[in-house]
């Protein structure tokens, strides 16, 4: 059943391309704004690059979540899912997984101008970096999908999601930036593994909580 739901999420996104296009465009805008605010035309900015990267991811993920849940509200499509014999926890998992996939796709595109415009040196050990980004994405989308479901029937849900999400994600923001910094500086993994541990525990805790509690917030 979860595969049906994930397929549905990705198909809706593939047809409309709303999340993807808005997220990709928004990341470009953020990158250029970073360049104007933090960068002198001659400098290199490796020190700030991890922070800028995760701010970009955080902001674009909120846009993606908004679109993804707007699909559910239009035509009250969500009622078709809710009235079907589908486990509510699986609805959460499908949103989480598909959201992470779309976010990763956007990052794959946005990373090119990010490296190019902000003159980033590509660090060694690409696999480590991919692992960190994967964990960060998964953690952000876990709580993001949950809170979007929580807020989807409120007025001002577009505003509520970031206001609730960002402080709740503060461990993820810190851990992602710290581990990315460790990786970019080429430090051995032992130095920054605590941060990876924080990311993993966040994913486990909120993945389980989200799966169990989603049933209580989907109903009108």
């Amino acid at each position: 059943m979860i595969m049906v739901l994930i397929k549905k999420e990705l198909l809706t996104e593939l047809r409309a391309k709303e999340s993807f296009v808005t997220m990709a465009a928004f990341s470009m805008v953020i990158i250029v704004s970073f360049a104007f605010t933090f960068i002198s035309p001659s400098g290199r900015f490796m020190e700030m690059a991890p922070g800028m990267f995760w701010i970009m991811v955080l902001f674009t993920s909120v846009l993606g979540l908004q679109r993804s849940f707007a699909y559910e509200s239009e035509f009250d499509a969500f009622s078709a899912i809710l009235s079907a014999p589908v486990d509510r926890g699986e609805i959460f998992l499908a949103k989480w997984i598909s959201g992470s996939i779309v976010l990763t796709m956007v990052e794959t595109i946005a990373i090119v101008p990010f490296i190019l415009f902000l003159r980033i040196e590509i660090p060694a050990n690409l696999l480590e970096g991919i692992g960190i980004i994967f964990l960060g994405n998964t953690a952000i989308m876990c709580l993001g999908s949950f809170l979007s479901g929580l807020a989807m029937r409120s007025r001002l849900s577009n505003v509520l999601v970031p206001i609730l999400l960002f402080p709740l994600l503060s461990p993820v923001i810190i851990a992602s930036v710290k581990s990315t910094t460790g990786w970019v500086r080429g430090l051995p993994i032992g130095v920054w593994e605590t941060w990876v541990f924080i990311l993993v525990s966040f994913i486990v805790i909120f993945g389980l909580l989200g799966y169990t509690l989603f049933a209580h917030i989907t109903e009108e």
């Binding site: 709580l143 949950f146 929580l150 609730l164 709740l168 503060s170 461990p171 810190i174 851990a175 941060w195 924080i198 525990s201 966040f202 805790i205 909120f206 909580l209 509690l213 209580h216 917030i217």
Partner: peptide, 18 residues
Amino acid sequence: AVLGIIAFADIPIIVFSV
């Protein structure tokens, strides 16, 4: 109710990371 649970579950992770 759900948010209260989520917020409290976040406290140890926040403390640890901060």
